[in-house]
Simulated scan of single mutants.
Amino acid sequence: MKKFIEEFKAFALRGNMMDMAVGVIIGGAFSGIVTSLTDNFINPVLNLVTGGKVYSLQDWAGFASAFLSSLVNFLIMAFVLFCLLKAINKLMAFGKKPEVPAAPTTKVCPFCKTEIALEATRCPHCTSTLEEAKA
């Protein structure tokens, strides 16, 4: 059972799976903004232009309020999702050890300042003889 849970955790918390989940959630929240924009601005403007309906100032204020509410809901959703992912990433990195930097494989020629192999005794660019480091 423990192995099953570990496999599921590895599957569910993979980077591309989390990215897809974030995309679906943000897409759903953004569709609310688009719907609100259509219902509260585009349709009333079209009704006004075509003479279908005349709106009062209070109606327009209600439209703007509904759109701003939708926008604030989107921003809150995005912020909560950001905080949640930040916490998940911190938990995922909690048990990992920092990577040890790899040993250098090149050095810089003291004469021409180009990178050369660490074992080189002569620079292939300027043909200078390099002194071997004494340990």
Rank of each mutant, 00 (worst) to 15 (best):
S36F: 08
S36L: 05
L37H: 10
N40R: 04
N40H: 08
I42D: 12
N43F: 14
N43M: 15
P44I: 06
P44S: 09
V45M: 15
L46H: 11
N47R: 07
L48R: 14
L48M: 14
V49K: 13
V49L: 15
T50F: 13
T50K: 10
G51M: 09
K53Y: 08
V54L: 09
V54F: 09
V54K: 11
Y55D: 05
S56K: 09
S56R: 10
Q58W: 02
Q58Y: 10
D59C: 08
W60S: 01
G62E: 06
G62L: 06
G62P: 01
G62R: 05
F63A: 00
A64Y: 03
A64F: 03
A66P: 01
L68V: 08
S69H: 10
S69G: 15
S70M: 05
S70L: 00
L71N: 01
L71H: 00
V72N: 06
F74V: 06
I76A: 13
I76R: 00
A78M: 05
L81R: 03
L81F: 05
L81S: 00
F82L: 15
C83T: 12
C83Q: 13
L84M: 00
L84I: 07
L84T: 07
L85G: 05
A87P: 04
A87R: 00
A87Y: 02
I88C: 14
N89Q: 15
K90F: 14
L91G: 11
M92Q: 15
F94E: 09
F94L: 15
G95A: 09
K96D: 12
K96E: 13
K97V: 14
V100R: 10
P101A: 05
P101E: 08
A102F: 11
A103M: 06
P104G: 04
P104A: 06
P104N: 00
P104C: 00
T105F: 07
T106D: 05
T106W: 05
C109K: 04
C109A: 07
C109V: 08
C109S: 09
F111G: 02
C112R: 00
K113Q: 11
E115V: 08
E115I: 09
I116C: 08
I116Q: 03
A117V: 10
A117D: 15
L118C: 02
L118A: 06
